[in-house]
Design a protein around this nucleic acid. Structure first.
Lengths: 218, 218, 218, 218
DNA sequence: TATGAATGAGTATTCATTCAT
DNA sequence: CATGAATGAATACTCATTCAT
């Protein structure tokens, strides 16, 4: 699936564009849309430039379709899966966060993040907008709803700002995934992958919870 | 910084390159390093391509210096400022977070983030590394230290994972600044700028605080 | 002409290439040999590029054969028809001119003229030469002979330059047909189609005729 | 002026595009717009491809400007020169025809004709239209007016179709120039250059003149 | 026969870089 | 210092041609 693809093999006719899209996405994400020559994409896909132009109108067209093809509306999927979940809001939130953390930790995701935030956002703003709406924004709304559910149930504090809370935790995990897992910060500032998730969610849940603030010691 | 550059001829250092660096940074950040032609940078700076080559060796050189020039070691500055701060760890953390949030909210910062994460990370990994070390990583360490100070002082829970907590809150605020403040998400999912900060810090402080978990209402 | 072509496999000669040749000729003539892609020819002919290569060796081969196929040695035909004509030279000339004018007025002829004069002349000079010899030059000679017949019969002036006269009238009608009838000048400078022929022949005949020059009125 | 240009020499700065336009026109006219590579044009102009793109946006742009640059509104010039002419309409017409015949006999004109009729007409119809309007059509009108002047003066027959007469003689001379002088027919069907003009004009004048038709001998 | 897929040499175009003035 | 002009290597894209099926 998200495997880097073993390139040299002959692409089956008919399925060729499919494999091509995966390869193109991978190459663009890894090396940069602008920085990579179409010929390199072709080579990586085991074909020649001409073949790409048989299927796509231009480099831009290839990128667009590659993005569409790779695009999985993760929060729509999660919403569905969530419907089957029972239990308190905190459990549901934990469920959601685990799902996204796993997805964002998949190999290649960080490069996709880089591609979209770094290049698509300036070169194809319309595509960036779609990503933003179906990605982060939808995520914020899903989690915000769950937090509000928890507030209504008395599980979380009345005065929690559900919207901002959702934004903070998802943005935090997303950027951690991008920087730490994919962009090399794991080597510069090592931290166990599971620990990041567990501690982050713990902290987040503490922040939401109904509490008694103890008087400061001093 | 704005070093005079040792060039064969009588190069009068200073003024001109200074403005050029700002312009170059702005144009690269806004429109993309790869996507923008040097001629456009020159035009934006009110000179011609040739003039740029009087000051810089190449487009890459221009980018490097522009990044250096714009780079302010924010956490070093904050560390210094922090030295004068009295009060509990929570106050110090709030002080630090406010500083970074304001800095990250400055116009153009989000584009710089885009430039660095999106283009520099793949094209000039060494520069990216420097940015990472002096930026996020240093930030994480500064805040982690303050959290540990709070833990030691009994102000925060003993079982808080200071490292991850620091990562989460800084990553969260950083990506919020980039996406929300600069990359257009403010229009797609409006949220007041100050509220994001205030609510986020509130949530974070709650998450750290020593608390009495009340029995669930039901 | 529509020769079966000796190809390695069991090539069923005939029908298909015939239509193809017509289509190819039309497309090349209308849109330009160089400017048109073979794929467009194929599409216009209701087949695919590959099929064309079953019948023809190359784009050039297709053009050659299309030209041959469309080529009708008009002046040879006219010579034959002329043999049956009785009457004075002027009548024969009128007969010939009417024939060529009608032929040159046929739809598509102007584009063929364009193709041959505009593209074939520089890209395939040998083909152009054949066209010139069987077309204009043969025409000039045919008409010149008729004029000389008229001169010998005392019908035309002794001092008429039969060669140049033939050239002038045929060139004039030919370019009028090309420009006026086919290349759009009819809209920019309207003139009735039959009138062009009738008046032109009238003028020509007056020019040839034995006359008494009257003294200028003033 | 219309000299083929001695290419290797260094183009003076500032005047470069001027020489380039001439060269480009020459190369396109001689070898075909579509058939010629931009690099060949550059080479012929003593520069490199890049330099052409410094001055022109595209190959098409170069052609357009080259056509404009070379374009001399011959009939406008002739109209002016004509104003100084005294004498009967026949003399004026002879004057005009001589002018155009000389112009159309200039080296390179036939190639220009080929370029415009053969390629420009199908690829850039708008430019072709302009050429048609300022060339043939304006010529027809000028000569038609002179013929009408002659008719009014009693010099020419009342029943001459001035419009068609003008068309015929100009088209005849134009195509003779193109085919005979420039496109190689002079070798296939030799005819003295001056004789073509003199005999053609003689014939034309006879055709226009007031005459007494003698009874046919038979 | 005919097609869809693929090729690769060719071509227009771009753009970082150079340099005489 | 600065510019206009020019370069040429790189790159997107085209299209005649091939070929397995």
């Amino acid at each position: 699936m998200s495997a880097p693809r073993d390139l040299p093999q002959k692409a089956k006719p008919g399925a060729a564009p499919h494999a091509l899209l995966d390869t193109a996405f991978h190459v663009f994400a890894t090396r940069g849309y602008r920085a990579v020559r179409l010929e390199e994409v072709a080579e990586a896909a085991g074909m020649t430039k001409g073949a790409i132009y048989y299927y796509f109108d231009s480099k831009e067209d290839l990128l667009r379709r590659a993005l569409q093809h790779r695009h999985r509306d993760i929060f729509a999927e999660i919403s569905e899966a969530l419907a089957a979940e029972r239990g308190p809001a905190s459990a549901k939130i934990r469920f959601v966060l685990r799902k996204v953390w796993l997805r964002w930790s998949e190999p290649g995701w960080g490069h996709a993040f880089r591609l979209i935030v770094g290049e698509v956002s300036v070169e194809f703003p319309a595509i960036f907008r779609i990503w933003a709406e179906e990605g982060p924004i939808q995520g914020w709304e899903l989690v915000r709803a769950l937090i509000e559910e928890g507030i209504a149930a008395g599980e979380f504090r009345q005065d929690v700002d559900a919207d901002v809370a959702a934004r903070l935790v998802l943005s935090g995990l997303m950027l951690q995934a991008a920087l730490h897992v994919h962009l090399g910060l794991a080597e510069l500032a090592p931290c166990d992958h599971d620990r990041i998730f567990d501690s982050a969610v713990d902290l987040f849940m503490h922040g939401l919870s109904v509490t008694h603030q103890l008087p400061a010691r001093a």
